[in-house]
Amino acid sequence: MFVANDFIPSPYSHIVEKGSFQWSSPSNIALVKYWGKKNNQIPANPSVSFTLNNCKTITTLAFAKKENQETFSFDLLFEGKPKEDFKPKIQQFFERIIVYLPFLKKYHFTIDTKNTFPHSSGIASSASGMAALAMNLMSLEKELNPEMTDDYFHQKASFLARLGSGSACRSVKGKIVVWGNHKNIEGSSDLFGVEFPNTIHEHFNNFQDTILLVDKGEKKVSSSVGHDLMIDHPFAERRFTQAHENLDKLISVFENGNLEEFIKIVESEALTLHSMMMTSIPYFILMKPNTLEIINAIWKFRNEKKIPLCFTLDAGANVHILYPKNVSAEVLQFIKNELVGYCQNGHYICDEIGIGSQLIMDN
């Protein structure tokens, strides 16, 4: 059983003066939703997600030793341009993880990051962004401690990413990732995400996720505010129990490939997430009229065509349509014929299950 102190390193065996790394980390889409947290980014319930492939953050971390080692020192660029409003979140992240990465004040960092998808549009850019930064920082720690094992590297990267953005811990590895203690999933932890360890039916090997961009603007409710809504929520405890129950059901579904049951669980989870926001104080409605139009069209299409597609939602208006690859032609035609008109500027993103974070450059 891991505890946080297991990630506090012994004195480093090597010295590194300067260098750079570049990692890509994907977004992820939760099937069982994480909503509500305890202190230190500990989830109130377990969650499970598909790791995506195309929606990702690419981050370059350059570093050089500096003389003044009393404070953090970093420049932050977004798509090559200074991004001052991102800096407080990185500062807070460094303050949270300094005990686990004691080298942070010894270097000046230049963090240059970009997304392959619209920022702050409900496609979990904080998850992919924090995961990519954590992977880069762990690459530096591995240079300082080359004896580090790959398992430890990925576990600690996920642990650190979680301290930046909870769901970021699910963006380190793929294809299906569990975060949060669950009695029937071996190795599951509140501290980091783990690859789903059980049998996965071939139906889920190449699952597709087409994201309909109903609203590409800033999220109306930040994740932090959203999670705080669960404190003293009248239905919180039942919701946390429900998440455990639905994760149990998905263990069987992932093994037997029952897509009908998969659809029921995933859509129920999406609607439950939004119902928790609609019944909190203060309360929020994050779906837009076009979100509801899309959901009703999906239900009608599935009922008429008997094609196994379903929707899920994050804490926003955009709709993720999930379906097996072997029905892609029919689903994409349906999207073009009936759904694209509900998307902002007709925009949607075709994605699929991916394999997690990837090292691009080691210099």
Rank of each mutant, 00 (worst) to 15 (best):
K156I: 08
S158V: 06
F159T: 01
R162Q: 14
L163R: 12
S165V: 05
S167N: 11
A168L: 10
C169P: 09
S171L: 09
G174V: 06
G174S: 11
K175E: 14
I176Y: 14
V177W: 00
V178C: 13
V178Q: 00
V178F: 05
N181T: 12
K183V: 11
N184Q: 10
N184Y: 01
S189E: 08
S189H: 06
D190E: 04
E195N: 11
E195K: 10
E195A: 09
P197Y: 02
P197F: 06
P197K: 03
N198K: 13
I200Y: 04
H203Y: 13
F204A: 04
N206I: 08
F207I: 15
Q208P: 01
Q208F: 02
I211M: 14
I211S: 14
L212K: 12
L212Q: 05
V214Y: 10
D215L: 11
D215M: 12
D215R: 15
G217E: 08
E218F: 09
E218D: 08
K219W: 10
K219S: 12
K220Y: 03
S222P: 09
S224H: 11
G226S: 07
H227Y: 04
H227R: 05
D228E: 15
L229M: 15
I231F: 05
I231T: 13
D232L: 10
F235W: 12
F235Y: 15
F235T: 03
A236N: 13
A236V: 01
E237G: 06
E237R: 10
R239A: 12
F240C: 01
Q242R: 12
A243G: 01
H244K: 13
E245L: 12
N246A: 03
N246M: 01
D248N: 15
K249M: 09
L250C: 07
I251E: 06
I251G: 04
S252M: 02
V253E: 03
F254V: 09
E255Y: 07
E261G: 02
E261Y: 05
F262S: 02
F262T: 04
F262E: 00
K264M: 10
V266F: 00
E267W: 01
S268C: 11
S268M: 11
T272Y: 11
T272W: 13
H274A: 11
M276P: 00
M277F: 15
M278E: 14
